[in-house]
Computed example of a mutant assay.
Amino acid sequence: MTTANPFSHLPPPEMIKELDVEAIRAEVLADMKARFQAAGIPFDVENTAYEPAVIQAEINSFRENRIRAAINDAAAANLIAFSNGSDLDQGATFYDVTRLAGESDDALRLRTSLAIKARSPGGASYWYALAARRADVRIRDVDAFEDVFLPIIYISVLSSEAGGVPDAAMLDAVNAEVQSDQVRLLNDTVVVQSAVSQTLPVKAGIWLLPSAPMATFDRLADELRAAWERETGIGFDLEPSWIEARLHVPGVKRVQVEVPSAPAVAAPGTAIALGDIDLTFKGRDY
């Protein structure tokens, strides 16, 4: 579970129509031609750019396309999956979710999704995850799970800062929220902890294509770290193949991942943080 859009797998709804101004123009001209011919008036100037009737048809087509776009926007504004800004605020309010100070649209969208799932009674994991997320806008991911042998609920917290390690203020805020009478069920023992269990380095050799600028290599480390923070979360394994795929951007000829040499597995409820990223420029090749 990360801060990515939880509805991203959904296709656009049928109410949102594809926009094609050329198709609208063709329909308008075909309708105009049929009406002229029905009245016994010849019309064979649809391909004449400076014909007044054609110009008027093009104007009408652009206006109709703008109207259809506005209808699409209005339809999307009513859907949590596609709305943004104040439209998303309005939709989230229906589920008793309000935006935190500085909270992004994707983070609010995710909390709204959790609020819907968390309405199950009995303290489901979604219930605690939702409570934890509203404690601090800097939270990147949360996982609530029960101990295998003991009647203890652990809440692992992953930060969007400091490589994922939450600071004391974040953990204290989450603990205060989940231990409150409004959240914790009477029989639950809840423990809040940092999700980061291991920090691992990355080392790889990079070959560029002859035409690629060195700037391509220079930004690879930052792009790799940003991709890890954007795409992963608690329970995500660090795979050499994932590293290679993210480093193999346009302009890169070859990537040789040296560390880790094998997949690093994240235990349940834990997260892996990236340590030093050591990339070596190996030269150029076709």
Rank of each mutant, 00 (worst) to 15 (best):
A30Q: 10
R66W: 01
I41W: 14
I55G: 03
E27R: 09
I24K: 07
S8M: 03
A74P: 07
S83L: 08
A39Q: 11
A81F: 02
R63W: 08
E14C: 03
Y50I: 02
I71N: 06
R35L: 02
V45F: 12
T48Y: 12
D73H: 13
A74E: 14
T48D: 15
I16N: 01
R66I: 07
A23N: 13
A34H: 13
R68E: 08
E14F: 06
A49T: 09
A38T: 01
R68F: 08
G85P: 01
D31K: 14
P52W: 06
A26Q: 11
D44A: 14
P12G: 04
H9E: 05
L29C: 10
F82D: 01
I41E: 14
P11R: 08
G85E: 04
A38L: 05
E22R: 11
P11K: 07
P52K: 00
A53W: 04
T48L: 15
P12F: 09
N72A: 02
N84K: 01
V54L: 14
N47V: 06
N78W: 11
E58Y: 06
A74R: 15
R66E: 09
I55N: 03
I71H: 05
A26T: 12
A26Y: 03
N47D: 15
N47I: 09
I24R: 07
I55D: 05
K17V: 15
Y50Q: 10
T48R: 13
P11F: 11
R68Y: 03
E64N: 07
E64S: 06
F7L: 11
A81H: 02
V45M: 13
A39C: 10
D87C: 06
N84Q: 05
A77Y: 04
P52M: 04
I59M: 08
S61P: 06
N84F: 02
N72Y: 00
A75T: 00
A38N: 11
E51S: 13
E14K: 07
P12Y: 05
G85C: 05
A34S: 15
M15K: 01
F43A: 05
V21P: 00
N60A: 08
A81I: 05
E51C: 13
N84M: 01
I59R: 06
N47Y: 11
L10Q: 10
I71D: 04
F36W: 08
P13I: 08
A30E: 14
I71K: 06
R63Y: 10
E64F: 04
E46L: 09
A26S: 13
I80F: 04
D44F: 07
M32H: 11
I24T: 14
A38F: 00
E64P: 02
V28W: 04
I24M: 12
P13A: 10
L79V: 12
E18C: 09
A49F: 07
R25K: 13
D44N: 15
E14P: 04
P52Y: 03
A49G: 03
A70E: 15
R63L: 13
